[in-house]
Design a protein around this nucleic acid. Structure first.
Lengths: 347, 347
DNA sequence: GTGAAAGCGCTAACAC
DNA sequence: GTGTTAGCGCTTTCAC
């Protein structure tokens, strides 16, 4: 916290050579062996390390990528961030975390702030989208990769997943194990995930393959355990009779699923015997929960990696055409739909 | 992704005034009303926004703070990061996430990289510490705040918690509900948390107040559910007899506690009736688990906030004396030590 | 109150 | 292979 840092000029003076030679010697580009040794010695004596800002200004490159989401604490985003960091760090990029806020307007403002040039690109997961946001993304001075929604028709690079199809996979799984009275526990419909998961459920029920006797839908106030518990109570209260009672609940994410399991147990019923429950996102919390959660993985880590790799390409060549990557959903069957005992017995 | 950004010089030319006046006008410092209007109009027409790098170079200030931990995915660090971001963002600081690696040497290398001047300070949680690391921290060209260990005698600013005392609180709680055969499930002893929690357990047992009939200690390979499960199996296998069996397990964190609960149930025993279990960190995963976990909160969010506030002070005045902040542990009693029924009955 | 000019630390032409 | 020099975009003395 004390001594001021040495500059390249000081190294040059100490080595008794020019500024340019010093720079070249330290980059190993076109300098004689003697020069390199001399400069490195001087640099070592002064404890020199190059200044990132000076270099950034000159090279017009910050070696920083922003990762922007609504809530940094969300486990899905955390998993993405970790994957992004793992891909970018070895390439010399730092990761700057930012928050979008929960509106399209605040997200657009954030994207617009890219004009101050503090990063070489941004990976953003907008909770909500509108035309202005899309315009900002297209006009951004650096590459932007959108997570969570395909925007191919808008000329925007994106990495998305088929969460609608994932809900379909959950429904088919429940059908395949004989469930016919299926409830859907969703979050707010005016969010990107809420909207697409609803679409997925409706489509799955409308499809052949699985003829449900009855379906019920309930919307939780948000994607949390508490909201899931409250909404699941309402859902289950609709048909108290033994005969018409739901025998399965598809939840729009793992936290809602945990809330649903709570609600089922409150009624003295068992999961999965009386009511099978599925989640989505395949979070650690769901894996650890008892019963462990059958959940649709949307490949958060894989999407993060894909976004980061796309960003690396775009950073290399900003004029590259926009591209869209899609990561497929994967159903992971665990105890909340197939009891551990049954699984063992089935071997 | 197309048009090149406007510079201050272009704004100046457009407004027909000098560069200096333009800068002043945009900062509202000593410029006539007419000048301000004129410049702002020009800036608006050109869609000007100031370049962060140019400004940083000139002001020798990046408006960035690094947050460095071993594993960005660790829920405790995530909570800290969120708190840090919440404090810093309103002050115009960006947060850069970095990884320390799990050794003192790799952490020292990261701290040393501060010499390239890409941030105005670093908040770091070293998993392991040695003299070289402490030296690097003291010599860093920008303020460094250490999370997780008091380094007062080393002239280093830090925010720590009393995890040893927290373990003591857990032990006393178990004693107070009549448990006398207490197992301690710890993680690796050569880590900062492992070491201090061990100290806390030993001290609590040595103290008066609680006379345990018997204590057993088992070390898990790391701080995960899987390692906790394996270690807890070993722990419980030591005394299979009903009479001498453990009636309580203190786990060094929530994940180990969940592993312990699994192990207890495998033996056909109930939590908390047969064996009470406590965790540490008070994570969301523990709150959501069934039974919900009695856990010692170490105030991750509060520590994050404190570290960020300390950093703001230090960034303002780097010559400020080093200071140490401590956040006390808080025991949160839930179902894993006091059954829900008992709790209700007790009202 | 305004303008001219220096310079933060670095890289990359360009000349030799 | 080496040195000289310009200049990235900005803020801030310093003179007027």
């Amino acid at each position: 916290m004390t001594s001021s840092r040495a500059t390249l000029l000081q190294v040059a003076e100490r080595a008794g050579v020019s500024l340019a030679s010093t720079s070249r010697a330290l980059h190993g580009t076109g300098a004689s062996k003697a020069m390199v040794e001399r400069v490195q010695a001087a640099a070592a004596e002064l404890g020199y390390s190059p200044d990132a800002i000076g270099r950034s200004l000159r090279m017009k490159k910050t070696f920083q990528i922003a990762f922007a989401v609504d809530d940094i604490g969300n486990p899905v985003y955390v998993e993405m961030m970790r994957a992004i960091h793992e891909v970018l760090a070895p390439h010399g990029y730092r990761v700057v975390v930012m928050t979008t806020g929960d509106t399209a307007t605040s997200t657009a403002a954030l994207v617009s702030s890219l004009n101050s040039g503090f990063v070489d690109g941004m990976i953003v997961a907008p909770l909500r989208t509108d035309d202005r946001l899309i315009r900002e993304i297209r006009q951004a001075p650096v590459p932007v990769v959108v997570l969570g929604r395909t925007l191919s028709d808008h000329g925007v690079s994106s990495v998305s997943t088929d969460s609608a199809g994932g809900i379909g996979a959950a429904v088919r799984h429940l059908c395949s194990i004989g469930r016919r009275r299926i409830g859907f526990l969703n979050g707010p419909l005016d969010t990107t995930p809420g909207e697409s998961r609803q679409r997925g459920f409706d489509a799955a029920i409308a499809a052949d393959g699985c003829t449900a006797e009855r379906t019920e839908i309930e919307i939780a106030g948000n994607f949390t355990v508490a909201a899931g518990l409250a909404a699941a109570r309402r859902l289950l209260a609709r048909m108290p009779g033994r005969a018409e009672r739901l025998d399965a609940v598809v939840a729009a994410n793992d936290l809602l699923a945990i809330g649903a399991i709570r609600a089922v147990r409150e009624l003295g019923l068992a999961v999965p015997e009386d009511v099978a429950v599925t989640g989505m996102d395949d979070t650690e919390i769901g894996q650890v929960f008892q019963p462990s959660l059958t959940s649709v993985s949307l490949g958060a880590a894989e999407r993060g990696r894909a976004a980061a790799q796309l960003m690396l390409q775009l950073a290399d060549d900003p004029d590259l055409q926009t591209q869209q990557v899609t990561v497929g959903p994967t159903l992971v069957v665990r105890e909340s739909t197939v009891s551990a005992g049954a699984e063992r017995g089935g071997r």
